[in-house]
Design a protein around this nucleic acid. Structure first.
Lengths: 202, 202
DNA sequence: GCAAATTAATGATTTATTCAAG
DNA sequence: CTTGAATAAATCATTAATTTGC
C-alpha cells in the first residue's frame, strides 16, 4: 500500500484509524494548530501533509451530513406514504421536522461525544478555538510545502520534516500552548461507541 | 483611508485599480506564483497578504457571475412576459438558453480579453498554469503569516517583508521563472476604460 | 455640518458540488 | 463506488456609503 509515487494521498490504515477516532471524539473542523499536530503525529505512519488532514475532515464532515440527510429524507418519504395509507390527511408540515433535524447553525455543528481533553489545554472555549480554520489560516503552519509548480510532488519516502520546532517567532503572544502534546499515548478513552480497536502501534 | 489597525484588509485605491486591471486582462483564478507576484507588487501600496489577493479574485469572479446571472434571468422574465403578451405559445425551452449562457465549464471560465504577457513567460499553457490554485497551494508561498491564534492581528504598519527572496529551496525544479517580472513598470497600457483618476498619494 | 442609524459593498469562512484517481 | 482534491455557491461579518434628524 501507499505506493511511492501516487498522484493523491491515500491514508494508511493507522492514519485512517486515528483520524476516525479523532472524528468520533468530536473534532470536525480542526484549527490550524490542531492540524499541525495531527499531521506531525500521522507523518510517523506514512507520507502526509497538512492539507490532507484538512481535506479529510472537510470531506468526512460533509459526507456525514449528506448521509444523514439522505436517511432523513428517506424516513420522511416513508412516513408520508404511511400517513397517506392511513387516510390521515393532516396538512403535511412534517417537512419542518426535517429542517429541525438538519444542522441549521453553521457555526457549531456537532455536540462533542467525547471531548478530547488533550486539545483544549489552552483553556479557551471550543468556539474560539474552532473558529480559525479556513484554508489559509490552517496552512500558515505548513512551512516546507512545495508550491507544486509542476506535478512533481515529493515522494522521497516520508522524510517530510514537518518541523514542529520551526514555529514562527511571532507566534504564541500570550498562549501557554506551545507544542502542546496532542496524542497523550495513554488511551484513557471509555470506548463508548468506538467500535474500532485501539490503534495498533506497529 | 486604510487605517493601520483594522480587522480586515481594505484595498487602497492603487491596489484596487491594479487588481481590477488584472481582472480585466483575463486573470480569474491566479496560480500560486501569480498570487505571490501580485502580492509582492501590491505590498508597495499598503499592507496586503496573499490571502487578500486570493479572496479578492474569488469574490470578484463570483460576484461577476452572480451579476450576469441576475441580468440574464431578468431578461428572460421580460422575454417570457412579452411572449405571453404576443400570444405566442411556443413551449418555452428558452430556459435552456440561460444554462447555455451560464458558465458550465468549471475549468476555464473566461476568454482572455487582453492576454497579460508578463504572466506567461514560462511558456506553459494557461490551463496547466491556472489549475494549481487551491487555497492550500496558493498559501505555500506565504511564509511569515501568523496563525492568528488569538485575534491580535499585526498592525505594525505595512512592514510585512513579503520576502521574495525567501523562496523554498526546493522550488523551481525546471522552471525559468524565478521572480519573473510581473509588473514591467513601463505603463504601456492604453487606458482603455480606466476612468479612475490617478492614485492620490495620501 | 455632524454623528447616529441604515443600507449597500465586500472581505473572509463555511458548505455544497463537482472532478478525478484508484 | 468510494474518496481525495478542487472549485463554486452560500453565508457570515465588518467596513464604507448613505440617509436622517438635529
Amino acid at each position: 500500500m501507499s505506493p511511492a509515487g501516487s498522484s493523491r494521498w491515500s491514508p494508511t490504515t493507522e492514519q485512517l484509524m486515528i483520524l476516525e477516532e479523532l472524528y468520533r471524539s468530536g473534532i470536525r473542523t480542526p484549527s490550524a494548530s490542531q492540524i499541525q499536530q495531527i499531521t506531525t503525529h500521522l507523518s510517523f505512519y506514512g507520507r502526509i501533509e497538512g492539507k490532507n488532514v484538512f481535506y479529510w475532515f472537510q470531506n468526512h464532515k460533509a459526507r456525514d451530513r449528506q448521509k444523514l440527510r439522505r436517511k432523513l429524507t428517506k424516513q420522511l418519504q416513508l412516513q408520508q406514504q404511511q400517513l397517506q395509507l392511513h387516510h390521515c390527511q393532516l396538512t403535511p408540515d412534517i417537512t419542518n421536522h426535517f429542517f429541525a433535524y438538519s444542522p441549521s447553525s453553521s457555526t457549531q455543528d456537532f455536540p462533542f461525544y467525547n471531548p478530547p481533553t488533550f486539545l483544549f489545554q489552552g483553556g479557551s472555549s471550543n468556539t474560539s478555538e474552532q473558529a480559525l480554520n479556513c484554508a489559509w489560516n490552517v496552512h500558515n503552519l505548513q512551512s516546507n510545502l512545495v508550491a507544486r509548480e509542476d506535478v512533481t510532488f515529493y515522494n522521497n519516502g516520508w522524510s517530510t520534516p514537518v518541523d514542529v520546532n520551526n514555529q514562527p517567532s511571532s507566534c504564541c503572544t500570550s498562549r501557554p500552548l506551545k507544542t502542546l502534546d496532542l496524542f497523550p499515548l495513554t488511551t484513557t478513552r471509555t470506548d463508548e461507541d468506538c467500535t474500532a480497536p485501539p490503534p495498533k502501534e506497529l
